[in-house]
Nucleic acid binder design. Structure first.
Length: 567
RNA sequence: GCGCCUGUAGCUCAGCUGGAUAGAGCAACUGCCUUCUAAGCAGUAGGCCAAGGGUUCAAGUCCCCUCAGGCGCACCA
């Protein structure tokens, strides 16, 4: 049950009825028969609370249609509004706003909803059980994860949680790029380090475009410790393959471990190589051929993107017969949307891949899949700073800075919260030095502190024999201080916030919501005491803060952040 | 050159299908702990919403143009 939505519906119905009556009375002109006036009625929460609980601009919207002054229209509507016990008073203000002041009953019923639903409060049925896959991070398995993956991880994981709350059947997936060029490069790099370790630095030249990181040499060294030098006599291809098989598995295990530490658990780890082995890549290309979107040139097979209104054509199969990443990606999305029958696929990509979005969607259209079934959340890249300067390498270790390095300096709670503070589209500078120094300033502690404070009061009162009462035994109407009401209002907002976060694919809304909720609580805490002589009032406030505790804990759990009872 | 993203307080960012006086946090300043956790609260100050045009009763929000920054434009992924 979404209380706010119900209240809005009540108001829409009332306004609509007022309109209809006014038209019947002849106080307002008759609109065209095909005009759906009801759909134009949008009550919204005014920024300024003195403008009522909900405001509606319908009179201004209809001014032109009716050729009347907005205030006149508003007066006609208001004088014909049906009686409604939830509406305390209605005022016409400003240019023609109709402001609704409601009784507090709807706010009080929030406490009942929280009691009934517990930590599930806030869940809605926007998704109606539709199957959606969120694919995120999908970091290159040739090395450890960087700061961008840290942001993408927090973003994707929380987006998945938000969609779960919104009623979708969500699968989290990691796409392992264990095929293609970068694996080839990985193999060449490993091979070079392997030979250098056994036969000396000068025995083989390190590939120009190879992976320079120390982790490559470490893999080669560990490989030698296990297998000795027996691979030296094999063909280069056999040796490379053995090295790749060994190092890739190690890397994947490390990726899994790092992500688990970051509290991200995937339902599926999907390997690109399986798409090649199963023939799905070939089938995707055949399908494109069949539908007339391919042609051959210079010995390569091309996708005719110009035919789909795009500027540039793309290679699907190289001259050497090896399919491109793009071809595999088309097969992958066919696998998601056709083979595995997901209704909706969401990918979290770094903004540097934005050029790929339109191509991918068009390619889906070309194989007969509705492109709107794929959404891509583009995340702006993280620019890593250290001591106020742009940093590429960690000054401490000399290696590039990884997710695990980050988690040495700041807590998982702080990292997840920080990376979900801003919308995906905002460019982000991340100063590791500052983050480590000021981790106490991280707003996550502000929210956790609110939770701990509530727990502390509950503990104290419990020791004195006072427990939280059931909603039906509490005189909630005693809650009427401004800070009590704004806290109630904020609690009431959660389902609506979930809805907006899900619709806009912006989990950062929820992070900001829970901060605002904490603000409401802290204000309440400073202006109203819970432990007061008036037992009825104490019980009402106790109910209020316990409900707040449940909501904060629930939201933090959704974001996979701990909710400490003491700080 | 073409395309995508961004530009709002000193700094980092919100601003919901256009709505009433543009909001937070940090930094600065002033108050509030013998009473439930001061990791908190209340308040002051800080703005030509990058510049210019347009649409509208109404523009930070929509359209056009310019400027600045980031990122793309491979038989890489």
């Amino acid at each position: 049950m979404n209380i706010q939505e119900n209240v809005k519906n009540t108001i829409v119905t009332a306004i609509n009825q007022g309109l209809v009556t006014a038209i019947e009375n002849g106080e307002l002109p008759k609109p065209n028969a095909d005009m759906d006036i009801k759909s134009l009625i949008y009550p919204e929460v005014p920024k300024d609370t003195t403008h009522g609980d909900f405001a509606c601009n319908i009179a201004m919207v209809l001014a032109k249609t009716f050729s009347m002054a907005p205030r006149k229209i508003a007066e006609a509507i208001v004088s014909n509004l049906p009686k409604c016990e939830d509406i305390e008073k209605v005022e016409i203000a400003g240019a023609g706003f109709i402001n609704f002041y409601l009784t507090n009953n709807w706010l009080y019923s929030t406490l009942e909803a929280i009691e009934n639903q517990g930590e599930a409060y806030g869940k809605i049925d926007l998704g109606k059980g539709k199957k959606v896959m969120v694919e995120f991070v999908s970091a290159n398995p040739t090395g450890p994860m960087h700061m961008g993956n840290a942001r993408g991880g927090a973003l994707g994981d929380c987006l998945a949680s938000v969609l779960e709350y919104a009623g979708y059947d969500v699968t989290r997936e990691f796409y392992i790029n264990d095929a293609g060029n970068q694996i080839e490069k990985f193999g060449k790099s490993l091979n070079a380090r392997y030979i250098q370790l056994l036969k000396g630095e000068d025995a083989i030249e390190f590939p120009e475009d190879g992976y320079q990181g120390e982790d490559i040499a470490e893999h080669a060294k560990a490989f030698i410790e296990i297998n000795g030098d027996k691979h030296l006599n094999m063909s280069e291809n056999e040796r490379k393959q053995a090295l790749i098989d060994y190092a890739l598995e190690k890397n994947i295990v490390a990726l899994k471990a790092d992500l688990e530490k970051y509290r991200i658990h995937y339902d599926v780890w999907f390997r690109e190589s399986t798409l090649h082995e199963s023939g799905e890549v070939k089938r995707a290309i055949d399908k494109l051929k069949e539908n007339g979107y391919t042609y051959e040139e210079d010995g390569a097979i091309w996708l005719n993107c110009e035919k789909m209104g795009m500027e540039k054509n793309e290679v699907l199969v190289r001259q050497n017969g090896i399919p491109t990443y793009f071809a595999a990606d088309i097969a992958y999305h066919m696998n998601k949307l056709e083979t595995r029958k997901f209704d909706w696929a969401i990918n979290v990509w770094g903004a540097d891949h934005h050029g790929h979005v339109a191509r991918m969607k068009n390619a889906l259209g070309a194989v007969g899949i509705e492109p709107s079934r794929l959404d891509v959340v583009l995340m702006q890249l993280v620019r890593l700073m250290q001591n106020g300067e742009v940093a590429r390498m960690s000054k401490r270790t000399g290696k590039s800075i990884t997710l695990s390095d980050l988690l040495v300096d700041i807590s998982v709670d702080a990292a997840r919260f920080f990376f979900n503070l801003r919308s995906a589209g905002s460019h982000l500078d991340f100063d590791l030095t500052l983050a480590a120094e000021q981790s106490n300033d991280n707003p996550v502690f502000y929210v956790q502190y609110a939770h701990a404070r509530i727990c502390s009061i509950l503990r104290l009162l419990k020791e004195e024999g006072t427990d939280v009462k059931a909603f039906s035994d509490v005189k909630v109407e005693l809650l009427k201080e401004p800070d009590e009401l704004s806290l109630l209002k904020k609690l009431c907002d959660l389902p609506e916030e979930i809805k907006m976060a899900a619709e806009s694919l912006e989990p950062s809304r929820i992070t900001r919501y829970v901060m605002e909720l904490a603000t409401c609580f802290h204000s309440f805490y400073n202006s109203c005491r819970v432990k007061v002589d008036d037992t009825e009032l104490m019980n009402a406030r106790l109910k209020l803060i316990d409900s707040t505790r449940i909501v904060i804990a629930g939201v933090l759990k959704m974001l996979k952040i701990t909710a400490p009872e003491k700080m």
